[in-house]
Structures are given as C-alpha cells and as structure tokens.
Amino acid sequence: MSNTATENEHDPLIPHGHQQTGRVGDRIFRGFASGAGIFVLVIMGAIGAFLIWKSIPSLQADSTNFFTTTEWFPDDNPAVFGIAALLFGTVISATIAMVLAVPVGIGIALFIAFYAPRPVASTLAFITDLLAAVPSIIFGLWGLAVLMPNMQGTAQWLNDYLGWIPIFDNTLGIYSKSLFIAGVVLAIMVLPTVSAVTREVFIQVPSEHVEGALALGATRWEMVRMAVFPFSLPGMISAAMLGLGRALGETIAVALILSAAFTINWHITEPGGNSFAANIALKWNEAGPIGLSALIASGLVLFLITLVVNMLARWIVSRRKDFSGAN
C-alpha cells in the first residue's frame, strides 16, 4: 500500500484517493482520527482495569462470600459485605421494568410505524421520544411525590386479589418505597429506548413484504404478524436488551424511591430492596477506605453485567445485517 501511495505522488493523473497517505498533513490528520477511535477502546479497557484494581483491597478484606452475603458492613473489622441483596434488587426491579416496558414499547413502535395517521406520525414519535429527555432525577422526584401515592391502590389491589401469588403478597400493609414502584418508574424511563429502537427496525421492514401480506388478504394485525414481526425479531430482542441495560444501571430514580434495605424480600410491593447503583450513590459519602473500595467492587459487577447485556444486544443487531431480508 505504501508503495502505490508513493507512486501516485509522482503521477499527476491519478487523483488523491482513499489509500493516499503520503502527505504529512494527511498522516497527522489520520493519526488524530485513529487516535480518537482507539481512545474509545482505551476508555472501555481503562474503566474495567481501574475498577478491578481499586476493588482488590476490599475483596481481600472481605471476611465473607462477596457473592452470597446480603449484609453491607465493609468498614467493620472484619469487613462483612456482599452483593446478594443488591443483585436481587437490581434484577427484580429491572425485570418488572422489562415486563411492563417491552410490550408497551413495541405497541408504541407499531402505532407510530403502521397505525398512526401518516401526517402526525413523526410528531407523535417526537413526543414519545421527549420522555427520553427527562433527567432521571426528575423521574425520581416525580416517582416519589406523584406516582407513589397513586400506586398505593394498585399495590393494595394486587395484594387483595392476586395475593395468592407470593410476590404480590404484602404482609406489612405498607405499600410505598417498594421494588414494584421502582420497577414502574424504570419501565417509564426505558420506554423511549425500547420504542425508538423497535421503531427503527419496523421502518426497515421492506414495503414489498408488507404489501405482499396485505395482497394475500391479511388484516392489518395479520400483516404485522406475517411480515413485520419475523423480520424484526432480532431488532426487537436487542431493543429490549438495550432497555434492560438502562434499567440495570439507573441510579438516582431508584435511590430516591427505595428505602434501602439489605434483604432479599420476594414480596415486591413491600418497602425495601436496593440496587447496585442506588447503593453506591447512597453509601458513597459515609464510606471509609474499604467501604469505597467495596462500592467500587459492586460497581465493577454492575459494569460487567451491563457490558454483557449491551454486547449481546449489539451482537444480535450486527448479526442481523447479514440476514437477507430484502431479497
């Protein structure tokens, strides 16, 4: 390649093309651009490396099993702490969020892509996307002050009529500050992510397939099932996973809503629960050196979980490019 480049330099007839690297200016500029690209990789690597490095002291000091302990007393001597309760709360609240947000998000995407009157569709899309612009602190404040009082009834109803399902049973008679409410707020927060990504894939469904289904005498819903869903399935899965990644890592809204407790409580409408991110925000300023390191260790676990979820989501989407949809 360098060979052809130097030859081109002497040949005025060949314009400067893609492979042209001969000039100093080009080389410097290219260096900057590549450097910026590589910087992204370096940052991602550095996040992992620094979090591992700084979590080692607490992991060495921990006198119990880091993964199965529910308590959090890292600054005691000997230190006793583990992520079991955090993992539980994070997974449960994110699961509730997914159960609510994925169907609704797909519904919104279908509405905008295929059902809404065409002239207003893009405006409606813009309005639903506005949800994404609301900062999480405001969702937290709203969840605490507006949503929570209005959710009492629903949680109570779940207990009264569905209480025979263990997770809806509420033995305390108190329905606030629960994982359930945190899950609902998270669902609202990830809704724009799920619906926006799903909408993108729906819009890519070739109109030939849509028309092919309609021409066979399919109703609109049958067309959606016949032509839209099979084509969009990978995209829908990865939309859900991107939403999951957001829900797992959300800090402030969850920290404001939960009354942090280091227990594993399957009664999701009762107060309590915790999450990785919320715990870090709440414990940060009262933590000693080992406490900080323990929080960093829990942050590392969160980072790895969201990394895996996001990588899977992106991998599914990137695989889809090879998938020949448009014949």
């Binding site: 940052i43 991602m44 890592g249 800090t251």
Partner: peptide
C-alpha cells in the same frame, strides 16, 4: 455502541 450503555454511575 457498548459505551452508550455504560451506566452513568460507573
């Protein structure tokens, strides 16, 4: 793409 999903607290 993956970096888009890094939680802000991380």
């Amino acid at each position: 793409d993956v970096m888009t999903g890094v939680p802000s607290i991380v």
